[in-house]
Design a protein around this nucleic acid. Structure first.
Lengths: 130, 130, 130, 130
DNA sequence: GTGGTCTAGACCACA
DNA sequence: GTGGTCTAGACCACT
């Protein structure tokens, strides 16, 4: 899986997993019917407790994004109609709205804030290419 | 005060206060020597516990951003050396870096992400003018 | 076979099979000596694993409700002593007792609960006639 | 709290809690804004692990039926508009539909099934009065 | 006082 | 092999 766990991040680990899986599904990186990595595998890969992964998967199942197949594992849910998985823009907007309010409180002009975001985007995309 | 408290936000309330005051000072919206609203007033305005406000103020005082004046209340500290308030860009960057990674996971192009942020900035600035 | 498998139901599939066969025998819908559908046929019909069907049949055989005939398949056991198949009322009562407690917790009057059950019974019986 | 935990019941304990709280809210036994018993209290009362209770509460919170008040405890959610809390009839119907199918499989006439349910209802209500 | 998170380990059930 | 459940205990954060 191409996502990261930051133990230093104050947001709980299970929440980091939930958020990222949600985004990867919205972005079609994870496609419908695809098998998710097993609880134990993911736990070992990131050196965390299997129950933590399990909790994240359970929440995603309750949300309708994952489906449990008895004895098989978890799959990305097939009936991804309209509920649950939202448009990518809708998942990104809250972060950007918060960042917009912060820019205003910091007295930064919209232009300066945009330039800064552009730099961050460029950096993030460069990490992947090489 | 032009800041907001979101009780549903998982980040603790006292932290929401600290972060926003820090930004307002960095952005010179709150200027040196200016009186802060009283603990009681702020608590009542946002329907939160006065002890929570008090804790936030104490942290800001320990950080050197606020000063406690007996009989008067809290003021924005006058001797803002360089250690207390940082550059506005440095305070905004972490949020934008996170938003950049999210955009990538969502499969959004940098251009689309920028456009979305531009819209958020415009909306945030319009709220204040009328 | 007129029974249904609900993969989303938390009760294990083999248990769903066992319970329903038990009822169909108690209700004389399946009569003594009658052939049961083959493991393979039943599995294919409901899109479940043959091993799951096999496990259910084995449990029913251990219970004395089914008999394994070499080269033929499973039959409804002929010597239905009193220990295997119980009275229909006894098999239905647990569900109704649970439903009665639920009605009480929901604040529904016994009369309202009865009316609702009447409607469900009518609907269930109509499904079969046409 | 007037609900029961049955350790022998195959349905997991946290699920028993969730289901019953859901019903008690739908039946207005628990009213909006009311405080729920604390995790530790409920755990001790029923001799189960606090984490099990916590898990149930978390699910109910995700469902929108409970609200967490930091440092205070859990309350029955106030904005109980339409989602989440359903009509009592809607929560009872699934059990009765299952019981109706069972009655049919058992070869019981609708009249006999109704009589049996009536008896169960009477018994359940008598337990409370004395 | 409140709930939340994580860990470690044991046991069960399903396929 | 898969996930689920429960326990016990430790530590943290908020009010």
């Amino acid at each position: 899986m191409n996502f990261t766990i930051a133990p230093s991040d104050p947001t709980p680990i299970y929440r980091q997993i939930v958020d990222q899986v949600r985004r990867l599904i919205a972005g079609r990186v994870l496609v419908q019917g695809q098998e998710m990595p097993s609880v134990r595998a993911l736990a070992q890969e990131h050196a965390i407790n299997p129950m933590t992964v399990s909790k994240a998967y359970s929440l995603l199942e309750a949300e309708g994004l994952l489906e449990r197949r008895r004895g098989i594992g978890m799959l990305v849910a097939i009936n991804q109609t309209r509920h649950g998985s939202a448009e990518p823009e809708d998942l990104l907007r809250p972060s950007l709205q918060a960042a917009a309010q912060q820019a205003k409180q910091l007295g930064l002009s919209p232009r300066a804030a945009l330039r800064l975001y552009e730099a961050c985007l460029k950096q993030t995309h460069q990490e992947e290419t090489p």
